[in-house]
Amino acid sequence: MGISYDEFKDAIQDGARRRQLLNRDGRPFFVLLSQQFSRAELEQLCDTATAIRRLDRHRDGREFLLSILRGHRIMNLFAQPSTRTSQSFMAAAEKLGATVSLVSDLRTSSFAKGESVPDSVRTLSSFFDTIVVRHPDDDFATQAAWALHRSQRPIPVVSAGSGKSQHVTQALLDLYTLRYSFYEHGGVDGKRLVIVGDVARNRAARSLALVLTKFRPGSIHFVSPQDFEPDDELLGYLRRHEIEVEVTNELEGLLRERGRELDAIYMTRLQKEWDAGGEAGQPKASADDLDADDRYVLRSDYRLLIREDCVIMHPLPRINELPESWEDHPGFVVWRQVRNGMWMRASVFATIHGAAGEIRARARRLGLLDTD
């Protein structure tokens, strides 16, 4: 109870203490870090997402899902603009019967009066059962979790994006999409992936790489401008987990040399809004200024360099780096990613509230999941 914020922040970077602080009753409670989950937990999250997806298509299953979090109230506290992510979290909560509130302009909240993060989230915990937070500050979600960890009424905190550092639920839905895509091809293990874009500042790209350390990918290739390559901390973390890593500054050369070997290409936009002086990650540049240059665009003619079953992903929003002409490529799964975000976030809510096992069991009884 008496742990300081600095002690809490340092402790959750250590594997053993991390589980003690972020888990309750043997399951995740605070969802802050892409690397906080074991492989078994990640696979259960994916299985629960599949169970929810299939139950939602079944009349009795849909009614059952609406009972899971009936009476629960979830707060979405979004200090950064993101219609897609906020609506995904809201839809996920509503699939399980919860009610949801959204605060998307902190100028209308007590933060504008100088209220501290601990005081604000402890106030909100009096009215809500879960808080989802998105903020341009890397540490905001961690501060919120620390404040509630030491309070008399701890409730779960789920990060929906923390600065340039972490986007844990995006990583979870991306893993789920990869697992689904490779289901008949041996799963994620052994697959060769390319992550393209501004890895230094793109929290989705970084978070996916961190989640993949719980599996055994064949390799991860990063394609980035030299100034925005993955940092030594991320590369060192991947290599300590025995993942083959390669960094290059041009996409075309990589595809011409090794394109037929690749199993997935994860495109991201260049994060030029941070260069443009945008406060809280909000761009002040025009759309044209945000375009990627040709070295980081997946040009249509590159389809000749990769296999038809190569999975093409993007966390959105996209600018020009993934042309619409790719949408008829057999491996294009971007819109599946979007919908998978709702199923995975519903899985996260069910897991932190202890209902995931019940959901999987109901899906099995209805013949919607494979039996153990």
Score class of each variant (00 low, 15 high):
313 M>H: 07
18 R>H: 14
227 D>A: 15
365 R>D: 08
234 L>M: 09
55 L>E: 03
241 H>C: 04
116 S>A: 02
25 D>A: 13
49 A>N: 03
73 R>N: 06
117 V>T: 07
196 V>R: 01
304 L>A: 14
132 V>T: 03
141 A>R: 01
288 D>F: 08
192 R>S: 12
271 Q>S: 07
60 D>F: 13
51 A>L: 11
127 F>Y: 14
101 S>W: 10
236 G>D: 05
76 N>D: 00
336 R>D: 15
282 Q>V: 08
96 L>D: 02
77 L>Y: 02
73 R>T: 08
286 S>K: 15
152 Q>P: 02
293 D>K: 10
217 P>K: 12
305 L>S: 09
294 D>M: 06
284 K>V: 10
58 H>T: 05
205 A>V: 09
237 Y>A: 11
78 F>K: 00
173 L>F: 11
78 F>N: 00
332 F>I: 03
150 R>F: 01
10 D>G: 08
349 F>N: 01
139 D>C: 06
121 V>Y: 00
74 I>N: 00
115 E>T: 01
199 V>E: 03
25 D>L: 04
92 A>T: 06
114 G>Q: 02
358 E>P: 00
94 E>M: 10
70 R>G: 06
125 S>A: 15
15 G>R: 09
148 L>H: 02
301 D>W: 14
72 H>I: 03
281 G>N: 02
39 R>P: 03
270 L>M: 12
257 E>A: 15
368 L>W: 07
292 A>I: 08
210 L>G: 00
319 I>T: 12
213 T>F: 06
335 W>P: 00
130 T>V: 14
138 D>R: 14
134 R>F: 00
85 T>S: 00
110 S>R: 04
106 L>V: 03
102 L>F: 00
169 T>P: 11
29 F>M: 13
93 A>E: 03
259 G>L: 12
351 T>L: 07
83 T>E: 05
147 A>F: 11
288 D>H: 13
135 H>E: 01
210 L>M: 14
262 L>D: 06
227 D>N: 15
43 E>I: 09
220 I>E: 06
119 D>Q: 07
325 S>W: 02
45 L>I: 15
77 L>R: 09
224 S>Y: 15
175 L>F: 13
116 S>M: 02
259 G>H: 12
132 V>K: 00
1 M>H: 07
362 R>Y: 06
294 D>C: 04
181 S>P: 07
69 L>P: 03
113 K>D: 01
12 I>A: 02
189 D>H: 12
56 D>L: 07
235 L>S: 13
70 R>L: 02
49 A>V: 04
219 S>E: 15
278 G>V: 01
153 R>Q: 07
73 R>S: 10
201 R>H: 15
211 V>L: 06
112 A>T: 00
251 L>D: 02
300 S>C: 05
271 Q>T: 10
352 I>S: 03
88 S>Y: 04
182 F>D: 12
78 F>L: 01
361 A>L: 09
60 D>C: 08
47 D>L: 15
366 L>Y: 13
63 E>K: 13
124 L>N: 01
2 G>S: 11
332 F>C: 08
238 L>C: 13
278 G>C: 04
34 S>D: 05
244 E>Q: 14
16 A>G: 07
30 F>G: 01
11 A>Y: 11
55 L>Y: 08
239 R>H: 03
1 M>W: 07
275 D>I: 14
311 V>C: 04
211 V>G: 05
